[in-house]
Design a protein around this nucleic acid. Structure first.
Lengths: 205, 205
DNA sequence: TTGCTCGGTTAATGAGCGTTAACGTATGGC
DNA sequence: GCCATACGTTAACGCTCATTAACCGAGCAA
């Protein structure tokens, strides 16, 4: 494991939208392949081939295969959380609007980044202890965002009831990767209705 | 791959509930381990150790590691389908009752056999083409069972809408493996309400 | 007893794969 | 012009791991 100029955070600090750097290409393809065949099911040679370089060439960009997975999982967790926080901030005060915004955000995410969503709950255990702890912490905070607003909206439900419901709705929304039919628009619409329908059941106790 | 007296179906043809045969022990432990760490993440030595024998001893009971996974996935798919068919038969004529029964059955299954439910949609791709086709066919038939009754109950929804909703509710119910709190009874009750809430959203179009 | 089958054991084999070594080549600042 | 750096390449190396070989004791039927 030779040391690399590894930019622990995302590259190009400015936030510009330039041509995708090689690093980003690799991450995207690795995500796709990991999601398709599992972390252990994909070889470094395959990942390399997917971006037009061969096997060990990857080690110019990442210290190892593990590091790719770690960056993917930490990255997705961070994006989910900060996205969620922004949405909560935007609509603060109106719990119904907050929940709607969280649902919409999560749907966008599930539809745009299927492979990452898949990885998110499939391959967490392959991480080094440190990374896994970080990811779990981020996940927990994201869930708490939802739980808080759900309890505000349905005060009769208990803490663990709300938390379970949130996890269940995540399961519902993340079921997306398995399907393709139905087109983006109607998919969005349908998932939204199903999610709100599920949450609504918390009221009719 | 030496040939084995491999009983393609389940052992002890009588249907008695005897002490679990060695074969069954192995399958149960393999399911647990595969669910925890993924098919590639578990070694045969580990599976052997889990039942008190060592690595290659498994080959007295299965022709290979793949065969264990195949039997698990085919088995669960068959049980889901036949269970579903029985429930549909029992309550035929009353779509609402049929759907309720399917939901209850699936919940029981998800709560009783978490590891298998996890495997079911995580490791399908590790199967030989033949087995994978068989599993997918069984899954499809099971889904069709649901789709038929959902469309009967909500005639306004299109075929693909109904199918997507069914998959989504599966995702909701199968989210179970991730949690532990809340006790069996209330978990059942909550999942039931969430699932019906989601389906109900198909009406309010 | 004999000898077959059942269910184990440990040691060897051989492939796959992550990682490292050693080596090239363009490019861009000095 | 020079040389360091970035980015690749191919060829080992070494480990893990599924599978096979070779061997063994306990029942148990004839």
């Amino acid at each position: 494991m030779t040391t690399i100029p590894t930019p622990t955070t995302t590259p190009q600090a400015g936030g510009r939208t330039a041509a995708p750097t090689r690093r980003e290409q690799i991450l995207r393809e690795a995500a796709r392949l990991f999601a398709e065949r599992g972390f252990h099911g994909v070889g470094v040679d395959e990942i390399g081939a997917a971006v037009g370089i061969s096997g060990p060439g990857l080690y110019r960009h990442f210290p190892g295969k593990d590091a790719m997975l770690a960056e993917l999982l930490v990255g997705i967790s961070e994006r989910l959380l900060t996205g969620g926080r922004i949405r909560v901030g935007e609509t603060a005060g109106d719990p119904e609007a907050v929940l709607a915004s969280l649902v919409d955000g999560h749907i966008d995410f599930a539809l745009d980044d299927r492979p990452l969503i898949t990885l998110h709950d499939r391959e967490l255990d392959r991480l080094k202890d440190e990374d896994r702890k970080r990811v779990r912490q981020l996940q927990r905070q994201y869930v708490e965002l939802w739980v808080a607003v759900v309890r505000e909206l349905y005060p009769d439900s208990s803490e663990s009831e709300a938390r379970t419901a949130v996890h269940a709705v995540f399961g519902l929304l993340n079921s997306t990767p398995h399907l393709a039919a139905l087109g983006r628009q109607s998919m969005e619409e349908l998932l939204r209705r199903l999610a709100h329908g599920a949450f609504g059941a918390l009221a009719r106790a």
